Amino acid sequence: MKLLLVEDEPLLMEEMERYLSEQGYRCEKATNFAEGEEKIALYEYDAIVLDITLPGGNGLKLLELLKKQHKEAGVLIVSARDSLTDKLAGLGLGADDYITKPFHLEELNARVNAILRRKSFSGHNRILIDDLVIDTTAQEVRWQDAVIALTRKEYELLLYFIVNKNRVVSKQSIAEHLWGDHYDMADNYDTVYVHTMNLRKKITALSGIDYIKTVYGMGYKFTAP
């Protein structure tokens, strides 16, 4: 997944780039309006983290440009402002979400992933991987005609893996996704391990395929065509 970070505060940019890169994203940077304008015009991104207040222009103008060019990137607006007017303006121009400074990097990651998940599944209620069928309307998973009985957390975990297909995801990022601000409940990430192992066993039992690989010292990877 490729991200564009548009932010003029050097320390915040450094922190966001480091943290999101650790989560497996490929990050590009723009530190002012002109750089953001150039990158949006020339390149495609899966998501853009966009500050409103930038040297040389307003981030909302970049959002307008993005939509005029019919780019498909999801947009998370970041701003020190906490006014309803700014939020409505950004969302009205097509932004997917809005986060106010200061924020935790874990929350930033969770919101970016939520945007990517919505973009990945938009307009589709059936996801097909080999003979593995995920019905997002019924929230049901099948291998061919056989139902794979998953708990809610196992189902959410499977969708998270599919959104991040062929990319290593850490135990921390899984815990943040499944429990949000309460992810500390997964003490030492043992709960993440249990959920992941149960999901692997249930899918492998019917399919004979272990899609979820352990990447030692890093996390897990869902590998599929």
Score class of each variant (00 low, 15 high):
Gly180Met: 03
Arg117Met: 09
Gly24Glu: 06
Met185Phe: 11
Glu14Phe: 12
Ile203Trp: 05
Tyr155Glu: 06
Thr204Lys: 15
Arg142Val: 01
Arg18His: 12
Lys119Trp: 04
Asp181Ile: 07
Asp96His: 12
Gly90Tyr: 01
Ser122Glu: 13
Tyr25Asn: 04
Asp181Trp: 05
Gly219Lys: 00
Leu105Glu: 04
Ala47Leu: 07
Tyr155Lys: 08
Arg152Ser: 11
Val163Asp: 01
Asn125Arg: 10
Tyr43Thr: 08
Thr85Ala: 13
Gly94Val: 07
Leu159Gly: 00
Ala73Arg: 03
Asp210Ala: 14
Ile40Val: 11
Leu116Met: 14
Thr214Glu: 11
Lys119His: 14
Glu64Lys: 15
Val194Ser: 12
Asp190Cys: 06
Leu50Gly: 02
Lys39Val: 01
Leu50Lys: 00
Ser83Val: 07
Asn188Ala: 14
Phe33Cys: 04
Asp135Lys: 05
Glu9Pro: 04
Gly57Thr: 12
Thr100Ile: 15
Asn164His: 14
Asp187Lys: 14
Asp181Lys: 15
Gly180Gln: 13
Glu35Ile: 06
Gly56Thr: 08
Gln23Met: 09
Leu11Tyr: 08
Asp131Leu: 11
Val49Arg: 00
Lys67Phe: 04
Tyr183Asp: 05
Tyr45Asp: 01
Ile52Asn: 00
Lys29Trp: 01
Leu54Asn: 04
Tyr183Ala: 03
Tyr183Leu: 07
Lys29Val: 11
Lys68Tyr: 08
Tyr211Glu: 03
Tyr189Phe: 15
Arg126Val: 10
Lys29Arg: 12
Val75Tyr: 06
Arg26Asp: 13
Leu63Thr: 02
Lys202Asn: 09
Val169Arg: 00
Thr136Arg: 08
Gly57His: 07
Leu199Trp: 03
Ile77Ala: 07
Ala73Tyr: 02
Glu38Met: 14
Val49Asp: 00
Phe33Gln: 01
Lys39Trp: 01
Gly217Phe: 07
Ile115Lys: 02
Tyr160Cys: 09
Leu11Gln: 11
Leu50Met: 12
Cys27Asn: 05
Ala205His: 14
Pro102Ser: 14
Lys119Val: 00
Tyr189Asn: 12
Met1Val: 09
Arg18Glu: 11
Val112Ile: 15
Ser122Trp: 10
Asn164Tyr: 05
Lys101Val: 07
Ser173Glu: 10
Ile209Gly: 01
Arg81Glu: 15
Leu63Gly: 06
Met218Asp: 09
Glu17Gln: 14
Val112Ser: 01
Asp97His: 11
Asp184Lys: 14
Lys87Phe: 14
Met185His: 08
His195Gln: 13
Ser207Val: 04
Gln172Val: 01
Met197Thr: 12
His177Leu: 03
Ser122Asp: 10
Ala224Ile: 08
Leu150Asn: 05
Ser122Lys: 13
Lys71Leu: 10
Gln23Tyr: 08
Leu199Ser: 03
Ala89Arg: 15
Leu150Tyr: 03
Arg117Tyr: 05
Asp82Met: 07
Leu66Lys: 06
Arg26Glu: 15
